[in-house]
């Protein structure tokens, strides 16, 4: 069996999750506290990937990032970044596609904290950054874990966006979900089954781990 698609899948999931974690915290922090009028608009945009067919997202990214167009051309000429049919493009697409899975749990976690926690910290002279890092985030660890695992699992399960923007290039953009499709097309059911079984098992245990941790099972039995 060719392990490359699986390695690529997990590499993509790790990179995507890491970027999402950093990007989503400020977004979630802002959404959880703002009274701005554009908040519903931003919330909608963040949640769009939940309901939109991945192909729609993939299609527009294909158009925007294509070197035929101004933005894609600018990226290519000035920064030497080519996002179509490349690993970089997959990462950008995955970050956008999995954004709600990271932002929403963190936002919900932050909103659930009493506002007096951050106010108490402010009255002690602590900056917003210190308050976020030392008080707010440590108290929403379950939400952070949920966000990380859901984004990771969702990226592993990605198909439509990857197919649209990444294509099917071995070692570059051929992730496991594409490989399965490929093998089925070629009537190679044994290989398709190996990939599928591995993905099934891994995602099952990842999610199980989250529910056990957030449900407090480990704490309960270690005491």
């Amino acid at each position: 069996m060719d392990w490359q698609p699986l390695v690529l899948t997990f590499k993509l999931a790790v990179v995507t999750t890491a970027i999402l974690f950093v990007v989503s915290i400020p977004i979630a922090r802002w959404l959880s506290s703002t009274k701005s009028k554009i908040r519903p608009v931003l919330e909608t945009l963040v949640s769009m990937p939940l309901v939109l067919p991945p192909t729609v997202l993939g299609f527009y990214m294909l158009v925007v990032f294509s070197p035929e167009n101004a933005f894609g051309n600018w990226l290519n000429e000035w920064l030497g970044i080519k996002l179509i049919f490349s690993f970089g493009g997959l990462v950008v697409a995955s970050v956008i596609y999995s954004l709600p899975f990271m932002v929403q749990p963190i936002q919900a976690g932050l909103s659930s904290l009493p506002s007096t926690l951050k106010e108490a910290s402010y009255t002690m002279g602590k900056s917003k950054m210190t308050t976020l890092l030392k008080v707010l985030l440590p108290n929403i660890k379950p939400s952070l874990l949920t966000g990380i695992v859901l984004s990771f699992a969702h990226t592993v399960g990605e198909f439509g966006v990857v197919l649209m923007i990444g294509g099917n290039m071995p070692g570059k953009t051929k992730v496991a979900s594409i490989a399965i499709y490929d093998e089925v097309e070629a009537l190679n059911y044994v290989a398709a089954n190996s990939y599928s079984l591995i993905l099934f098992t891994i995602t099952f245990f990842i999610l199980l781990l989250v529910y056990l941790t957030n449900g407090g099972y480990f704490k309960r039995y270690s005491q």
């Binding site: 007096t116 926690l117 106010e119 108490a120 440590p138 108290n139």
Partner: peptide, 11 residues
């Protein structure tokens, strides 16, 4: 400032 709900940091 002593808050009504104490606002102690749980972590």
């Amino acid at each position: 400032y002593v808050f009504q709900d104490y606002a102690l940091f749980p972590n």
